[in-house]
Design a protein around this nucleic acid. Structure first.
Lengths: 252, 252
DNA sequence: GGTGCCAGTTGACCTCCGTCAATTGGTCGC
DNA sequence: GCGACCAATTGACGGAGGTCAACTGGCACC
Protein backbone atom coordinates (compact mmCIF):
# COMPACT_ATOMS: atom_id res chain seq x y z
CA UNK A 1 0.00 0.00 0.00
CA UNK A 2 2.32 2.80 1.18
CA UNK A 3 5.75 2.97 -0.44
CA UNK A 4 7.66 2.08 2.74
CA UNK A 5 6.08 -1.37 2.71
CA UNK A 6 7.56 -2.08 -0.70
CA UNK A 7 10.97 -0.88 0.38
CA UNK A 8 10.92 -3.11 3.42
CA UNK A 9 9.89 -5.96 1.17
CA UNK A 10 12.85 -5.43 -1.11
CA UNK A 11 15.18 -5.23 1.85
CA UNK A 12 13.86 -8.50 3.10
CA UNK A 13 14.36 -10.02 -0.31
CA UNK A 14 17.96 -8.93 -0.36
CA UNK A 15 18.88 -10.29 3.01
CA UNK A 16 21.65 -12.87 2.94
CA UNK A 17 21.50 -16.46 4.12
CA UNK A 18 23.45 -15.57 7.24
CA UNK A 19 20.79 -13.14 8.36
CA UNK A 20 17.84 -15.26 7.24
CA UNK A 21 15.45 -16.44 9.91
CA UNK A 22 15.06 -19.73 8.08
CA UNK A 23 18.73 -20.53 8.27
CA UNK A 24 18.36 -23.44 10.62
CA UNK A 25 15.61 -25.06 8.55
CA UNK A 26 17.22 -24.58 5.19
CA UNK A 27 20.36 -25.69 3.44
CA UNK A 28 22.70 -23.64 5.67
CA UNK A 29 21.84 -25.71 8.75
CA UNK A 30 25.09 -26.70 10.40
CA UNK A 31 27.30 -24.79 7.96
CA UNK A 32 30.05 -22.50 9.24
CA UNK A 33 30.01 -18.73 8.69
CA UNK A 34 32.72 -18.74 6.03
CA UNK A 35 31.08 -21.42 3.97
CA UNK A 36 27.76 -19.71 4.43
CA UNK A 37 29.01 -16.69 2.56
CA UNK A 38 30.09 -18.87 -0.31
CA UNK A 39 26.65 -20.45 -0.42
CA UNK A 40 25.11 -17.00 -0.18
CA UNK A 41 26.93 -15.94 -3.32
CA UNK A 42 25.25 -18.70 -5.31
CA UNK A 43 21.75 -17.60 -4.36
CA UNK A 44 21.05 -15.84 -7.56
CA UNK A 45 17.75 -14.32 -7.17
CA UNK A 46 14.99 -13.92 -4.69
CA UNK A 47 11.83 -13.63 -6.64
CA UNK A 48 8.17 -13.22 -5.83
CA UNK A 49 5.43 -15.48 -7.09
CA UNK A 50 1.78 -14.51 -7.08
CA UNK A 51 -0.91 -16.97 -6.09
CA UNK A 52 -1.31 -19.51 -8.88
CA UNK A 53 2.04 -18.64 -10.48
CA UNK A 54 4.03 -21.60 -11.73
CA UNK A 55 7.64 -21.96 -10.55
CA UNK A 56 8.37 -24.88 -12.86
CA UNK A 57 6.35 -27.39 -14.80
CA UNK A 58 6.71 -30.93 -16.05
CA UNK A 59 9.20 -30.97 -18.92
CA UNK A 60 11.03 -27.78 -17.91
CA UNK A 61 14.78 -27.99 -18.22
CA UNK A 62 16.51 -28.31 -14.87
CA UNK A 63 18.30 -25.12 -13.90
CA UNK A 64 18.04 -24.63 -10.21
CA UNK A 65 16.75 -25.77 -6.87
CA UNK A 66 14.42 -23.42 -5.05
CA UNK A 67 13.95 -22.52 -1.41
CA UNK A 68 10.61 -21.29 -0.15
CA UNK A 69 11.32 -18.08 1.76
CA UNK A 70 7.80 -17.03 2.58
CA UNK A 71 4.34 -18.14 1.54
CA UNK A 72 3.72 -21.67 0.33
CA UNK A 73 3.66 -23.85 -2.79
CA UNK A 74 2.23 -27.14 -3.90
CA UNK A 75 4.02 -29.65 -6.08
CA UNK A 76 2.10 -32.18 -8.15
CA UNK A 77 2.40 -34.70 -10.96
CA UNK A 78 0.04 -35.31 -13.85
CA UNK A 79 -0.28 -38.53 -15.77
CA UNK A 80 -1.06 -38.99 -19.44
CA UNK A 81 -4.82 -39.03 -18.80
CA UNK A 82 -4.56 -35.65 -17.11
CA UNK A 83 -5.00 -36.92 -13.57
CA UNK A 84 -3.26 -34.80 -11.03
CA UNK A 85 -1.76 -35.90 -7.73
CA UNK A 86 -0.48 -33.38 -5.23
CA UNK A 87 2.83 -34.56 -3.78
CA UNK A 88 3.40 -32.02 -1.05
CA UNK A 89 2.73 -28.57 0.29
CA UNK A 90 5.90 -26.62 0.89
CA UNK A 91 6.38 -24.12 3.70
CA UNK A 92 9.24 -21.65 4.27
CA UNK A 93 12.67 -23.23 4.60
CA UNK A 94 11.82 -26.17 2.35
CA UNK A 95 13.78 -26.88 -0.82
CA UNK A 96 12.08 -28.10 -3.97
CA UNK A 97 13.13 -29.22 -7.42
CA UNK A 98 15.00 -32.44 -6.60
CA UNK A 99 12.84 -34.42 -9.01
CA UNK A 100 14.77 -32.92 -11.90
CA UNK A 101 18.18 -34.25 -10.86
CA UNK A 102 17.44 -37.68 -12.30
CA UNK A 103 16.77 -36.72 -15.91
CA UNK A 104 17.87 -33.08 -16.05
CA UNK A 105 14.31 -31.96 -16.46
CA UNK A 106 11.43 -31.53 -14.09
CA UNK A 107 8.82 -34.26 -13.99
CA UNK A 108 6.44 -32.41 -11.69
CA UNK A 109 4.88 -29.00 -11.33
CA UNK A 110 5.35 -26.37 -8.62
CA UNK A 111 2.75 -23.69 -8.12
CA UNK A 112 2.37 -20.95 -5.51
CA UNK A 113 -0.62 -21.27 -3.20
CA UNK A 114 -0.34 -17.64 -2.15
CA UNK A 115 2.01 -14.74 -2.77
CA UNK A 116 5.38 -16.31 -2.02
CA UNK A 117 9.02 -15.42 -2.10
CA UNK A 118 11.59 -17.85 -3.45
CA UNK A 119 15.37 -18.17 -3.36
CA UNK A 120 16.85 -19.66 -6.50
CA UNK A 121 19.96 -21.83 -6.31
CA UNK A 122 21.37 -22.30 -9.83
CA UNK A 123 22.54 -25.86 -9.84
CA UNK A 124 25.84 -25.53 -11.65
CA UNK A 125 26.99 -22.95 -9.14
CA UNK A 126 25.60 -24.94 -6.25
CA UNK A 127 27.54 -27.96 -7.47
CA UNK A 128 30.69 -25.89 -7.57
CA UNK A 129 30.23 -24.83 -3.96
CA UNK A 130 29.22 -28.26 -2.69
CA UNK A 131 32.27 -29.82 -4.31
CA UNK A 132 34.43 -27.39 -2.35
CA UNK A 133 32.46 -27.53 0.88
CA UNK A 134 31.94 -31.13 1.97
CA UNK A 135 29.65 -30.11 4.84
CA UNK A 136 27.31 -28.48 2.37
CA UNK A 137 27.38 -31.56 0.21
CA UNK A 138 26.37 -33.73 3.16
CA UNK A 139 23.68 -31.26 4.11
CA UNK A 140 22.26 -31.31 0.59
CA UNK A 141 22.07 -35.09 0.68
CA UNK A 142 20.33 -34.90 4.05
CA UNK A 143 17.75 -32.54 2.63
CA UNK A 144 16.96 -34.85 -0.29
CA UNK A 145 16.78 -37.74 2.13
CA UNK A 146 14.27 -35.77 4.22
CA UNK A 147 12.11 -35.55 1.12
CA UNK A 148 12.31 -39.31 0.67
CA UNK A 149 11.31 -39.86 4.31
CA UNK A 150 8.47 -37.38 4.02
CA UNK A 151 7.14 -39.26 1.00
CA UNK A 152 7.25 -42.47 2.99
CA UNK A 153 4.92 -40.82 5.49
CA UNK A 154 2.64 -39.75 2.68
CA UNK A 155 2.52 -43.28 1.28
CA UNK A 156 1.79 -44.76 4.70
CA UNK A 157 -1.02 -42.26 5.16
CA UNK A 158 -2.59 -42.98 1.78
CA UNK A 159 -2.18 -46.72 1.90
CA UNK A 160 -3.07 -47.64 5.45
CA UNK A 161 -5.23 -44.94 6.98
CA UNK A 162 -8.92 -44.21 6.84
CA UNK A 163 -10.12 -40.84 5.59
CA UNK A 164 -10.60 -39.33 9.06
CA UNK A 165 -7.23 -40.56 10.26
CA UNK A 166 -5.63 -39.11 7.18
CA UNK A 167 -7.07 -35.65 7.69
CA UNK A 168 -6.12 -35.72 11.37
CA UNK A 169 -2.57 -36.75 10.48
CA UNK A 170 -2.39 -34.05 7.83
CA UNK A 171 -3.50 -31.33 10.25
CA UNK A 172 -1.09 -32.48 12.93
CA UNK A 173 1.78 -32.48 10.47
CA UNK A 174 0.88 -28.96 9.36
CA UNK A 175 0.66 -27.89 12.99
CA UNK A 176 4.12 -29.32 13.69
CA UNK A 177 5.62 -27.53 10.74
CA UNK A 178 4.02 -24.24 11.77
CA UNK A 179 5.57 -24.60 15.19
CA UNK A 180 8.98 -25.19 13.73
CA UNK A 181 8.50 -21.85 11.97
CA UNK A 182 7.84 -20.25 15.35
CA UNK A 183 4.20 -19.82 14.56
CA UNK A 184 1.21 -20.80 16.60
CA UNK A 185 0.64 -24.46 15.87
CA UNK A 186 -3.00 -24.38 16.95
CA UNK A 187 -4.18 -21.59 14.64
CA UNK A 188 -3.72 -22.83 11.11
CA UNK A 189 -4.29 -20.63 8.13
CA UNK A 190 -4.67 -23.04 5.29
CA UNK A 191 -3.29 -21.64 2.07
CA UNK A 192 -4.52 -24.63 0.08
CA UNK A 193 -8.11 -25.27 -1.01
CA UNK A 194 -10.29 -28.16 0.13
CA UNK A 195 -9.75 -29.59 -3.34
CA UNK A 196 -6.01 -29.54 -2.80
CA UNK A 197 -6.31 -31.21 0.60
CA UNK A 198 -8.62 -33.88 -0.82
CA UNK A 199 -6.32 -34.53 -3.74
CA UNK A 200 -3.26 -34.73 -1.50
CA UNK A 201 -4.99 -37.36 0.63
CA UNK A 202 -6.42 -39.36 -2.28
CA UNK A 203 -10.01 -38.38 -1.40
CA UNK A 204 -12.69 -36.19 -2.96
CA UNK A 205 -13.60 -32.74 -1.78
CA UNK A 206 -16.98 -33.72 -0.32
CA UNK A 207 -15.35 -36.24 1.98
CA UNK A 208 -12.88 -33.67 3.27
CA UNK A 209 -15.64 -31.15 3.80
CA UNK A 210 -17.70 -33.67 5.77
CA UNK A 211 -14.68 -34.58 7.88
CA UNK A 212 -14.02 -30.95 8.80
CA UNK A 213 -17.66 -30.65 9.86
CA UNK A 214 -17.50 -33.88 11.83
CA UNK A 215 -14.33 -32.87 13.65
CA UNK A 216 -15.91 -29.54 14.48
CA UNK A 217 -18.97 -31.32 15.91
CA UNK A 218 -16.66 -33.49 17.98
CA UNK A 219 -15.13 -30.35 19.45
CA UNK A 220 -11.69 -31.09 18.04
CA UNK A 221 -11.53 -28.16 15.64
CA UNK A 222 -13.04 -24.77 15.08
CA UNK A 223 -13.32 -24.31 11.33
CA UNK A 224 -13.95 -21.07 9.52
CA UNK A 225 -13.12 -21.46 5.84
CA UNK A 226 -9.32 -21.30 5.57
CA UNK A 227 -8.82 -20.69 9.24
CA UNK A 228 -8.70 -23.81 11.40
CA UNK A 229 -8.14 -23.73 15.14
CA UNK A 230 -7.13 -26.92 16.91
CA UNK A 231 -9.13 -26.88 20.14
CA UNK A 232 -8.17 -30.32 21.40
CA UNK A 233 -4.72 -31.44 20.20
CA UNK A 234 -5.06 -34.54 22.39
CA UNK A 235 -8.22 -35.67 20.64
CA UNK A 236 -6.72 -34.86 17.25
CA UNK A 237 -3.75 -37.06 18.07
CA UNK A 238 -6.12 -39.85 19.00
CA UNK A 239 -7.86 -39.59 15.64
CA UNK A 240 -4.61 -40.36 13.82
CA UNK A 241 -4.25 -43.97 14.86
CA UNK A 242 -5.87 -47.00 13.35
CA UNK A 243 -6.86 -49.86 15.56
CA UNK A 244 -4.55 -52.38 13.97
CA UNK A 245 -6.45 -55.51 14.99
CA UNK A 246 -9.58 -54.39 13.17
CA UNK A 247 -8.04 -54.02 9.77
CA UNK A 248 -6.32 -56.57 7.63
CA UNK A 249 -4.87 -53.61 5.77
CA UNK A 250 -2.93 -52.81 8.87
CA UNK A 251 -1.28 -56.09 9.57
CA UNK A 252 0.60 -56.77 6.37
CA UNK B 1 23.90 -78.57 -5.11
CA UNK B 2 27.20 -79.67 -6.64
CA UNK B 3 30.33 -77.95 -5.42
CA UNK B 4 31.11 -76.25 -8.73
CA UNK B 5 27.92 -74.21 -8.42
CA UNK B 6 29.11 -72.76 -5.13
CA UNK B 7 32.49 -71.91 -6.59
CA UNK B 8 30.90 -70.14 -9.52
CA UNK B 9 28.72 -68.28 -7.07
CA UNK B 10 31.71 -67.05 -5.12
CA UNK B 11 33.43 -65.97 -8.28
CA UNK B 12 30.39 -64.04 -9.26
CA UNK B 13 30.29 -62.42 -5.86
CA UNK B 14 33.87 -61.28 -6.17
CA UNK B 15 33.53 -59.70 -9.56
CA UNK B 16 34.33 -56.02 -9.66
CA UNK B 17 32.04 -53.19 -10.67
CA UNK B 18 33.79 -52.90 -14.01
CA UNK B 19 32.87 -56.44 -14.96
CA UNK B 20 29.40 -56.32 -13.45
CA UNK B 21 26.49 -56.79 -15.79
CA UNK B 22 24.53 -54.23 -13.81
CA UNK B 23 27.06 -51.51 -14.35
CA UNK B 24 24.84 -49.39 -16.52
CA UNK B 25 21.90 -49.54 -14.13
CA UNK B 26 23.88 -48.96 -10.99
CA UNK B 27 26.00 -46.22 -9.51
CA UNK B 28 28.85 -46.66 -12.05
CA UNK B 29 26.65 -45.52 -14.95
CA UNK B 30 28.56 -42.93 -16.90
CA UNK B 31 31.70 -43.17 -14.78
CA UNK B 32 35.11 -43.51 -16.42
CA UNK B 33 37.26 -46.64 -16.03
CA UNK B 34 39.76 -45.01 -13.68
CA UNK B 35 37.12 -43.68 -11.34
CA UNK B 36 35.32 -46.97 -11.53
CA UNK B 37 38.27 -48.69 -9.92
CA UNK B 38 38.21 -46.21 -7.09
CA UNK B 39 34.54 -46.87 -6.55
CA UNK B 40 35.20 -50.56 -6.75
CA UNK B 41 37.64 -50.30 -3.86
CA UNK B 42 34.92 -48.94 -1.61
CA UNK B 43 32.58 -51.86 -2.23
CA UNK B 44 33.34 -53.62 0.96
CA UNK B 45 31.47 -56.74 0.87
CA UNK B 46 29.16 -58.73 -1.32
CA UNK B 47 26.95 -60.69 0.94
CA UNK B 48 24.09 -63.11 0.49
CA UNK B 49 20.70 -62.76 2.12
CA UNK B 50 18.27 -65.64 2.45
CA UNK B 51 14.57 -65.17 1.85
CA UNK B 52 13.11 -63.22 4.77
CA UNK B 53 16.51 -62.00 5.97
CA UNK B 54 16.60 -58.39 7.12
CA UNK B 55 19.22 -56.09 5.60
CA UNK B 56 18.44 -53.19 7.92
CA UNK B 57 15.57 -52.22 10.14
CA UNK B 58 14.00 -49.06 11.49
CA UNK B 59 16.33 -47.53 14.07
CA UNK B 60 19.52 -49.15 12.78
CA UNK B 61 22.49 -46.85 12.68
CA UNK B 62 23.36 -45.70 9.19
CA UNK B 63 26.51 -47.35 7.92
CA UNK B 64 26.18 -48.02 4.26
CA UNK B 65 24.14 -47.90 1.11
CA UNK B 66 23.35 -51.21 -0.54
CA UNK B 67 23.07 -52.33 -4.14
CA UNK B 68 20.89 -55.26 -5.10
CA UNK B 69 23.08 -57.54 -7.19
CA UNK B 70 20.71 -60.43 -7.66
CA UNK B 71 17.38 -61.44 -6.23
CA UNK B 72 14.99 -58.84 -4.83
CA UNK B 73 14.05 -57.01 -1.64
CA UNK B 74 11.15 -55.08 -0.24
CA UNK B 75 11.42 -51.92 1.82
CA UNK B 76 8.67 -50.87 4.18
CA UNK B 77 7.80 -48.55 7.04
CA UNK B 78 5.84 -49.29 10.18
CA UNK B 79 3.97 -46.74 12.25
CA UNK B 80 3.47 -46.69 16.01
CA UNK B 81 0.31 -48.79 15.79
CA UNK B 82 2.23 -51.50 13.95
CA UNK B 83 0.77 -50.84 10.52
CA UNK B 84 3.11 -51.69 7.73
CA UNK B 85 3.35 -50.02 4.32
CA UNK B 86 5.56 -51.44 1.61
CA UNK B 87 7.43 -48.63 -0.13
CA UNK B 88 9.04 -50.48 -3.00
CA UNK B 89 10.30 -53.74 -4.43
CA UNK B 90 13.93 -53.56 -5.42
CA UNK B 91 15.43 -55.43 -8.36
CA UNK B 92 19.09 -55.85 -9.32
CA UNK B 93 20.97 -52.63 -9.95
CA UNK B 94 18.87 -50.63 -7.51
CA UNK B 95 20.41 -48.84 -4.54
CA UNK B 96 18.67 -48.69 -1.19
CA UNK B 97 19.26 -47.10 2.19
CA UNK B 98 18.88 -43.41 1.28
CA UNK B 99 16.25 -42.93 3.97
CA UNK B 100 19.01 -42.97 6.60
CA UNK B 101 20.92 -39.97 5.23
CA UNK B 102 18.53 -37.51 6.87
CA UNK B 103 18.92 -38.59 10.49
CA UNK B 104 21.90 -40.95 10.39
CA UNK B 105 19.67 -43.88 11.14
CA UNK B 106 17.31 -45.94 9.07
CA UNK B 107 13.62 -45.17 9.34
CA UNK B 108 12.48 -48.12 7.26
CA UNK B 109 13.08 -51.84 6.92
CA UNK B 110 14.65 -53.80 4.10
CA UNK B 111 13.99 -57.51 3.75
CA UNK B 112 14.94 -60.05 1.09
CA UNK B 113 12.06 -61.54 -0.89
CA UNK B 114 14.23 -64.42 -2.11
CA UNK B 115 17.85 -65.45 -1.84
CA UNK B 116 19.64 -62.27 -2.88
CA UNK B 117 23.12 -60.92 -3.22
CA UNK B 118 23.99 -57.44 -2.04
CA UNK B 119 26.91 -55.04 -2.52
CA UNK B 120 27.63 -52.89 0.50
CA UNK B 121 28.91 -49.34 0.07
CA UNK B 122 30.17 -48.06 3.43
CA UNK B 123 29.10 -44.46 3.45
CA UNK B 124 32.18 -42.80 4.89
CA UNK B 125 34.32 -44.35 2.18
CA UNK B 126 31.75 -43.58 -0.47
CA UNK B 127 31.75 -39.96 0.64
CA UNK B 128 35.50 -39.89 0.33
CA UNK B 129 35.32 -41.12 -3.25
CA UNK B 130 32.42 -38.92 -4.27
CA UNK B 131 34.19 -35.84 -2.93
CA UNK B 132 37.13 -36.69 -5.19
CA UNK B 133 35.11 -37.77 -8.19
CA UNK B 134 32.51 -35.15 -9.07
CA UNK B 135 30.93 -37.38 -11.72
CA UNK B 136 30.21 -39.97 -9.08
CA UNK B 137 28.72 -37.34 -6.83
CA UNK B 138 26.38 -36.23 -9.57
CA UNK B 139 25.48 -39.81 -10.33
CA UNK B 140 24.67 -40.46 -6.68
CA UNK B 141 22.37 -37.46 -6.61
CA UNK B 142 20.71 -38.70 -9.79
CA UNK B 143 20.08 -42.06 -8.17
CA UNK B 144 18.42 -40.52 -5.11
CA UNK B 145 16.39 -38.32 -7.41
CA UNK B 146 15.22 -41.43 -9.28
CA UNK B 147 13.92 -42.75 -5.98
CA UNK B 148 12.01 -39.51 -5.43
CA UNK B 149 10.49 -39.75 -8.91
CA UNK B 150 9.58 -43.39 -8.39
CA UNK B 151 7.77 -42.48 -5.18
CA UNK B 152 5.83 -39.85 -7.07
CA UNK B 153 4.59 -42.61 -9.36
CA UNK B 154 3.62 -44.69 -6.35
CA UNK B 155 1.69 -41.79 -4.84
CA UNK B 156 -0.12 -41.13 -8.10
CA UNK B 157 -1.05 -44.78 -8.33
CA UNK B 158 -2.38 -44.97 -4.76
CA UNK B 159 -4.16 -41.65 -4.80
CA UNK B 160 -5.80 -41.50 -8.18
CA UNK B 161 -6.22 -45.01 -9.54
CA UNK B 162 -8.81 -47.72 -9.00
CA UNK B 163 -7.73 -51.13 -7.80
CA UNK B 164 -7.64 -52.72 -11.26
CA UNK B 165 -5.74 -49.82 -12.76
CA UNK B 166 -3.26 -50.01 -9.93
CA UNK B 167 -2.54 -53.69 -10.44
CA UNK B 168 -2.21 -53.20 -14.19
CA UNK B 169 0.20 -50.30 -13.63
CA UNK B 170 2.17 -52.35 -11.14
CA UNK B 171 2.55 -55.27 -13.55
CA UNK B 172 3.57 -53.02 -16.41
CA UNK B 173 6.16 -51.33 -14.25
CA UNK B 174 7.57 -54.71 -13.21
CA UNK B 175 7.60 -55.79 -16.84
CA UNK B 176 9.53 -52.67 -17.84
CA UNK B 177 12.09 -53.22 -15.14
CA UNK B 178 12.53 -56.86 -16.13
CA UNK B 179 13.23 -55.76 -19.67
CA UNK B 180 15.87 -53.30 -18.55
CA UNK B 181 17.53 -56.30 -16.89
CA UNK B 182 17.54 -58.06 -20.26
CA UNK B 183 14.89 -60.46 -19.11
CA UNK B 184 11.66 -61.39 -20.79
CA UNK B 185 9.21 -58.66 -19.87
CA UNK B 186 6.18 -60.82 -20.56
CA UNK B 187 7.04 -63.74 -18.26
CA UNK B 188 7.11 -62.37 -14.75
CA UNK B 189 8.22 -64.43 -11.82
CA UNK B 190 6.86 -62.61 -8.83
CA UNK B 191 9.12 -62.90 -5.84
CA UNK B 192 6.64 -61.10 -3.60
CA UNK B 193 3.47 -62.59 -2.13
CA UNK B 194 -0.06 -61.49 -2.90
CA UNK B 195 -0.07 -59.93 0.56
CA UNK B 196 2.94 -57.84 -0.38
CA UNK B 197 1.39 -56.71 -3.65
CA UNK B 198 -1.85 -55.80 -1.88
CA UNK B 199 -0.02 -53.88 0.80
CA UNK B 200 2.12 -52.04 -1.73
CA UNK B 201 -1.02 -50.91 -3.56
CA UNK B 202 -3.01 -50.03 -0.44
CA UNK B 203 -5.46 -52.89 -0.99
CA UNK B 204 -6.25 -56.19 0.73
CA UNK B 205 -5.14 -59.57 -0.49
CA UNK B 206 -8.62 -60.74 -1.53
CA UNK B 207 -8.98 -57.78 -3.88
CA UNK B 208 -5.64 -58.52 -5.52
CA UNK B 209 -6.52 -62.17 -5.87
CA UNK B 210 -9.84 -61.33 -7.51
CA UNK B 211 -8.14 -58.91 -9.87
CA UNK B 212 -5.64 -61.53 -11.02
CA UNK B 213 -8.55 -63.88 -11.69
CA UNK B 214 -10.49 -61.20 -13.52
CA UNK B 215 -7.53 -60.25 -15.71
CA UNK B 216 -7.02 -63.90 -16.51
CA UNK B 217 -10.69 -64.23 -17.54
CA UNK B 218 -10.26 -61.17 -19.74
CA UNK B 219 -7.40 -62.91 -21.48
CA UNK B 220 -4.85 -60.29 -20.44
CA UNK B 221 -2.81 -62.56 -18.20
CA UNK B 222 -2.03 -66.17 -17.63
CA UNK B 223 -1.60 -66.63 -13.90
CA UNK B 224 -0.03 -69.59 -12.19
CA UNK B 225 0.79 -68.70 -8.62
CA UNK B 226 4.01 -66.69 -8.72
CA UNK B 227 4.38 -66.98 -12.46
CA UNK B 228 2.46 -64.41 -14.48
CA UNK B 229 2.52 -64.24 -18.26
CA UNK B 230 1.35 -61.09 -19.98
CA UNK B 231 -0.62 -62.36 -22.97
CA UNK B 232 -1.93 -59.01 -24.16
CA UNK B 233 0.38 -56.11 -23.29
CA UNK B 234 -1.88 -53.81 -25.28
CA UNK B 235 -4.92 -54.64 -23.16
CA UNK B 236 -2.87 -54.38 -20.00
CA UNK B 237 -1.79 -50.89 -21.03
CA UNK B 238 -5.42 -49.99 -21.58
CA UNK B 239 -6.32 -51.11 -18.08
CA UNK B 240 -3.89 -48.60 -16.60
CA UNK B 241 -5.78 -45.47 -17.53
CA UNK B 242 -8.65 -43.85 -15.75
CA UNK B 243 -11.28 -42.10 -17.80
CA UNK B 244 -10.60 -38.66 -16.40
CA UNK B 245 -14.00 -37.15 -17.17
CA UNK B 246 -15.80 -39.73 -15.06
CA UNK B 247 -13.95 -39.11 -11.85
CA UNK B 248 -13.74 -36.02 -9.75
CA UNK B 249 -10.71 -37.60 -8.17
CA UNK B 250 -8.96 -37.21 -11.49
CA UNK B 251 -9.56 -33.60 -12.23
CA UNK B 252 -8.01 -31.85 -9.26
C1' DG C 1 -24.54 -2.41 -5.13
C1' DG C 2 -25.80 -5.99 -8.12
C1' DT C 3 -24.50 -10.27 -10.07
C1' DG C 4 -21.87 -13.99 -11.64
C1' DC C 5 -18.85 -17.31 -10.28
C1' DC C 6 -16.56 -20.56 -7.76
C1' DA C 7 -15.27 -22.75 -3.17
C1' DG C 8 -17.35 -25.10 0.11
C1' DT C 9 -21.17 -27.64 2.44
C1' DT C 10 -24.80 -30.91 2.91
C1' DG C 11 -27.98 -34.67 1.63
C1' DA C 12 -29.38 -38.94 -0.89
C1' DC C 13 -27.84 -42.70 -3.14
C1' DC C 14 -24.79 -46.30 -4.83
C1' DT C 15 -20.60 -48.83 -5.73
C1' DC C 16 -16.20 -50.48 -5.08
C1' DC C 17 -13.61 -52.69 -2.14
C1' DG C 18 -12.96 -54.35 2.65
C1' DT C 19 -14.59 -58.06 5.93
C1' DC C 20 -15.61 -62.59 7.21
C1' DA C 21 -15.75 -67.32 6.25
C1' DA C 22 -14.96 -71.56 3.82
C1' DT C 23 -12.12 -74.07 0.71
C1' DT C 24 -8.15 -75.42 -2.13
C1' DG C 25 -3.59 -76.42 -3.11
C1' DG C 26 1.57 -76.20 -2.39
C1' DT C 27 5.28 -76.83 0.45
C1' DC C 28 7.94 -78.20 4.24
C1' DG C 29 9.12 -81.28 7.94
C1' DC C 30 9.04 -85.75 9.62
C1' DG D 1 3.97 -90.21 1.68
C1' DC D 2 1.35 -88.02 5.40
C1' DG D 3 -0.17 -84.19 7.96
C1' DA D 4 0.24 -79.38 9.28
C1' DC D 5 0.43 -74.99 7.89
C1' DC D 6 0.08 -71.10 5.22
C1' DA D 7 -0.65 -68.68 0.64
C1' DA D 8 -4.11 -68.05 -2.36
C1' DT D 9 -8.78 -68.23 -4.12
C1' DT D 10 -13.73 -67.64 -4.06
C1' DG D 11 -18.30 -66.30 -2.32
C1' DA D 12 -21.57 -63.53 0.45
C1' DC D 13 -22.21 -59.38 2.64
C1' DG D 14 -21.65 -54.64 4.47
C1' DG D 15 -19.83 -50.07 4.89
C1' DA D 16 -16.64 -46.25 3.93
C1' DG D 17 -16.30 -43.20 0.80
C1' DG D 18 -17.35 -41.75 -4.11
C1' DT D 19 -21.08 -39.66 -7.16
C1' DC D 20 -24.62 -36.57 -8.25
C1' DA D 21 -27.31 -32.76 -7.17
C1' DA D 22 -28.88 -28.75 -4.75
C1' DC D 23 -27.73 -24.97 -2.06
C1' DT D 24 -24.97 -21.23 0.39
C1' DG D 25 -21.85 -17.63 1.00
C1' DG D 26 -17.58 -14.90 -0.28
C1' DC D 27 -15.45 -12.31 -3.41
C1' DA D 28 -14.19 -10.11 -7.61
C1' DC D 29 -15.63 -7.43 -11.37
C1' DC D 30 -18.48 -4.35 -13.61
Amino acid sequence: MEPTATVLDLNQLRRSCSSCALQELCLPAGIGADDLNRLDATVKDKRMLDRGAVLYRDGDKFNALYVVRSGSLKTFVQNESGNMQILAFHLPGEIIGFDALASNQHVSHAEALERSSICELPYTQLQQVTSEVPALHRQLMRVISREVVEEHRHLMMMGRQQAQEQLATFLRSLSDRYQRLQRDGTALNLSMSRYDIANYLGLVVETVSRLFSRMEEMGVLEVNRKSVRILRPDLLAGLCRTDVASKQKGVG
